[in-house]
Design a protein around this nucleic acid. Structure first.
Length: 418
RNA sequence: GGAGAGGUAGCCAAGCGGUUUACGGCAACAGUCUUGAAAACUGUCAGGGUUAAUAGCCCUCGCGAGUUCGAAUCUCGCCCUCUCCGCCA
């Protein structure tokens, strides 16, 4: 949620921001509701002052005066009730209106309407060249007996997978590799709950903006399955005031990610690029407002370091205004070369959500004058499934075997799979 | 799942319809004293809102409704924690 004060002070800036994101929102509604709210609030407060003063006189008043005072108190009470109703109404209208507002973009985010206008920041390596016709990850994985989607569809349905044998060893090696790098940067490893309350999910803003469809709900409990560990890491510090000295506070969350993938029928149906469940190591940071951009660059640099360590070719994209997600003020994606598709595909994403999530979560930084909202950032360390695809396809040999990236060789105890 | 106890500020803890602006203690911070430290003493010591304001005023005693002129205190609902029983890795 954006700052109401900012909206009232700079309505034009907010409109401009919405327009850049392709959202046509008339700010005058929110401004009006905000003003109504302020007026009702003032009335309620004044009446309460009166009521408080009056009720103090009751106990010392004489027996004759008392009934009149009590009668007067009753009247004020009714007036308060009326104004409180108006206040509640203005507040609910205002917050419903503000839910539509995306985060305020950082100044350096390029303007654009869709992914085609994303800005290429840099490229690492070159698309892998083969002296033979490369196979895709599914064909490779099935032949090696490490990816089984056929049986998974029998057991669970489409978009599920059994990872077996060396694929599992690869996953654990990737986790180990990522954690060892993240520990150097003072990340605290966390295994969060995979089920969180609907309230928590809502507080992270994932149930708004049509996000509801993407999430698995439970039938008998008011809980949902997380789509990323970020959803469980954010609410960890709900309603807390963080000391400035403990910032940046960095978590490395490891969890499965459950996604319904509604609306993506017929898209990326082959293999394990888009599945309902995959494991991921996610970076999540809380910082002071003035340090969040620096932190964002750090998260990106860690992602790149991890990929460079694996020797996979990738490019870094800065998403344009129209492609940046609602809670984000700036997002970088890392797209990794996928030989079977002859193109770069998203494997990592890192966002500075500034105070958009922390405002609703009420997570603040203790400051001398006034405490203010902390900033929150997230970034992918490894989405295991897609990283496996990239390794299998880029490191495949003509005979269908896979050379293991150097940094993982010792961790899985072999130089070659198959 | 069954039975009981309890949630008050960073922590402990009193209050159980109206001088409570939430007693008191610990911790923390600042100061006095001291060569320095400890001790002692003095002061500061929850958030949020409103505001030019660190002035006033309003709200918050787990959360939400209600009763009352007035609720931490009474009523109802919900959440959470602890103990015992059952089940269980």
């Amino acid at each position: 949620m954006i700052d109401i004060k900012y909206l009232l002070e700079q309505p034009d800036k907010v409109t401009e921001n919405n327009t850049r994101r392709g959202k046509d929102i008339d700010v005058s509604f929110a401004v009006k509701h905000a003003k109504d709210r302020a007026e009702s609030l003032e009335q309620v407060q004044e009446l309460r002052t009166k009521a408080n003063e009056l009720s103090k006189t009751v106990s010392t008043a004489s027996a004759e005066d008392r009934p009149a005072i009590i009668e007067q108190g009753k009247q004020i009470k009714n007036q308060i009730k009326d104004w409180e109703e108006k206040l509640a109404q203005a507040e609910s209208l205002l917050s419903a209106e503000l839910f539509k507002y995306p985060n305020i973009l950082r100044g350096d985010v390029p303007t654009g309407t869709n992914g085609l206008q994303n800005e290429q920041v840099r490229v690492f390596g070159e698309p892998t060249k083969f002296s033979f016709t490369p196979k895709d990850h599914l064909e490779l994985g099935e032949k090696l007996g490490i990816i089984d989607v056929e049986r998974a569809s029998k057991v669970s349905g489409a978009r599920f997978v059994y990872l077996k044998g060396d694929a599992v060893l690869l996953e654990f090696a990737l986790i180990q590799y990522a954690l060892s790098e993240l520990l150097k940067e003072k990340f605290i490893p966390v295994i969060p709950p995979h089920l969180i309350s609907i309230d928590s999910m809502s507080s992270m803003g994932y149930l708004q903006h049509g996000g509801e469809e993407e999430i698995y709900h439970l039938k008998n409990d008011p809980m949902v399955l997380i789509g990323t560990s970020e959803q469980a890491l954010g609410p960890m510090h709900l309603n807390e005031v963080l000391d400035e000295e403990q910032l940046p506070l960095r978590y490395a969350g490891f969890s499965p990610c459950y996604r319904r993938e509604a609306g993506s029928y017929g898209k990326d149906t082959r293999g394990i690029l888009r599945v309902h469940q995959f494991d991921k190591i996610e970076m999540f940071s809380f910082t002071t407002p003035e340090r969040s951009d620096e932190e964002h660059e750090l998260l990106l640099s860690i992602e790149e370091r991890l990929m460079q360590g694996l020797g996979l070719p990738y490019r870094v994209m800065k998403l344009c205004s129209g492609d940046t997600g609602t809670p984000s003020a700036r997002t970088y994606d890392i797209e990794t070369w996928m030989p079977s598709q002859n193109m770069y595909r998203e494997t990592h994403s890192t966002s500075n959500t500034t105070d958009f999530q922390t405002r609703r979560l009420n997570i603040r930084v203790r400051r001398k004058g006034k405490n203010e909202c902390a900033h929150a950032l997230n970034g992918t360390a490894f989405a295991i499934g897609r990283t496996l695809i990239a390794i299998l396809e880029n490191y495949q040999q003509e005979d269908g075997s896979i050379v293991v990236p150097k940094v993982l060789q010792q961790l899985i105890g072999k130089e070659k799979i198959g």
